[in-house]
Simulated assay, not measured.
Amino acid sequence: MKIRVGLMLLALLGGCDNASPPDKGFAGLGTEAVAFTPVVPGRVFSFPADHGAHEGFRIEWWYVTANLKDAEGRDFGVQWTLFRSALDAAPQASGWRNQTIWLGHAAVTSATVHHAAERYARGGVGQAGVRTTPFDAWIDDWRFGTQAVGPDPLADMQLKARGPHFSYDLRLTSTRPLVLQGDQGFSQKSEQGQASYYYSQPFFQAAGALEIDGRRYQVSGPAWLDREWSSQPLTENQTGWDWFSLHLENGDHVMLYRMRHKDGEPYLTGTWIDARGQARTLDARAISLTPLDTAEVAGRSMPVRWSIKIPARQLDVTTRALNPDAWMNLRIPYWEGPVQLSGSHGGNGYLEMTGY
């Protein structure tokens, strides 16, 4: 899902208007949002409209990760995220009266290097935004936009970003269907009913150029898009999450997330997506998700090696971080980077860990 670190943007909103959100749940995300549109079961998704922004909801994001290799077999990871967060639930005005905050995160990772960058923008002035015809999501010169000529804008996309020590320009293509996560797109995050609307495109194939510290690479590999929007996605008791997106060598894909609590067992769920795009929800009883080894990262003990078991699918793998030091040293820091699989299935994917 990422229940996306994008949710953490809510912790920044007060800073934009000289007020601080209360510390309820991770990054204040357990605070009440009664004025905003609630997330309820039974929503009918509509595309391409739902690729765009959803006014009335408090937070949403467009999030892409890619697991890439160059011609010599060297592994890389790329992340691109655009977050939209509303300061109030009223219809948004134009110009500087607009009450929308946009935030961009981008990163690249190799076995030895991790670089991350961020951008901020106020809505209403053209510096950042999302449009649906043709689909384009941008903040400054960072872009995730369509190049497709047919009815599906996600069939052919351009993804690009740059920071002080990196840049990338990738083409993402797919012929497979979107995947609605959870219960037909209603993705529950707690036993109390907190939820988001959530869909993914896990079947992207990426190819293009990546530059790190002045060295340029031609790369290709699988990529994954997550789209979520919500108004109150966490409870006060939830301290952070561990989220996986996995590309298996047999063509299947797996999404898992574990919402950690101050008290009690984590909330655990996921989705198994077969090679045809058929999705099956996994509940906590079907999943064993266990940290194995930790590493000292930015003064924190982070679990960078995990055991994942889904017996009904004969999955028994260990994930290993390509670079244990994939720390997003941004205004709100977190860990995010590519992982590699070994065991019953080969493959790769991405891991995000927040709240440590």
Rank of each mutant, 00 (worst) to 15 (best):
D263L: 13
W229F: 13
D263K: 13
L225T: 07
W229E: 09
G270M: 03
A195M: 00
F244Y: 14
G208S: 10
F204D: 08
W241H: 13
G208Y: 00
I212M: 14
Y257S: 11
S174F: 01
P177A: 10
V254H: 04
R215M: 15
G240R: 02
R260Q: 08
G185H: 04
R260D: 09
G251C: 11
G264D: 11
I212H: 11
Y197R: 00
P202W: 12
S231R: 00
Q238K: 02
Q181A: 15
G240H: 02
D183M: 12
S190H: 06
H253S: 09
W243L: 12
G270L: 08
S174I: 03
P202V: 01
L180T: 06
W224A: 09
G185Y: 06
R216F: 02
Q184V: 14
G251Q: 03
M255K: 00
A207T: 08
G214R: 04
T235G: 05
Y197S: 00
Q181N: 13
Y257D: 08
Y257H: 14
E236L: 12
R260Y: 12
P266R: 03
S196R: 03
P222A: 09
S196H: 02
G193L: 05
G182T: 05
Q188I: 13
S231C: 11
E191P: 04
F203A: 12
W272V: 02
P233C: 08
T235Y: 01
L268R: 00
K189N: 15
Y217W: 15
R227Y: 06
P266E: 04
P222C: 09
D252S: 15
A223F: 05
F203G: 06
R227E: 00
E236T: 13
E211Y: 03
E265M: 08
G240E: 12
Y267K: 01
N250V: 07
Y199A: 07
L210V: 02
G182K: 00
D226M: 11
I212W: 11
V254Q: 07
E211Q: 15
I212K: 07
T271I: 03
S200Q: 10
N237E: 10
P177L: 10
V254P: 05
A209D: 15
S174N: 06
A209P: 00
E249R: 11
Y267N: 06
Q184W: 04
E191I: 11
G264A: 12
K262V: 13
L180V: 10
R216S: 15
I212C: 06
R227W: 05
L210E: 03
I212Q: 11
T235L: 10
W243C: 01
E265G: 09
L248D: 06
Q184I: 12
N250S: 12
Q238C: 02
L178T: 07
Y197F: 12
T271P: 07
P202M: 05
G240F: 04
Y217P: 06
D213P: 04
L234M: 15
Y217H: 15
Y199M: 11
K189W: 12
D242H: 04
L256N: 03
H261G: 14
S190N: 06
T269R: 10
F204I: 09
L225Q: 08
T269D: 14
Q181V: 13
L180G: 12
E228Q: 14
L178W: 04
A223R: 00
S245T: 15
D263H: 14
H261C: 14
D252F: 07
A207S: 12
L268A: 01
R258F: 04
R216L: 14
L225F: 09
E191D: 13
A206L: 10
Y199K: 01
P202I: 12
G221I: 02
M259E: 05
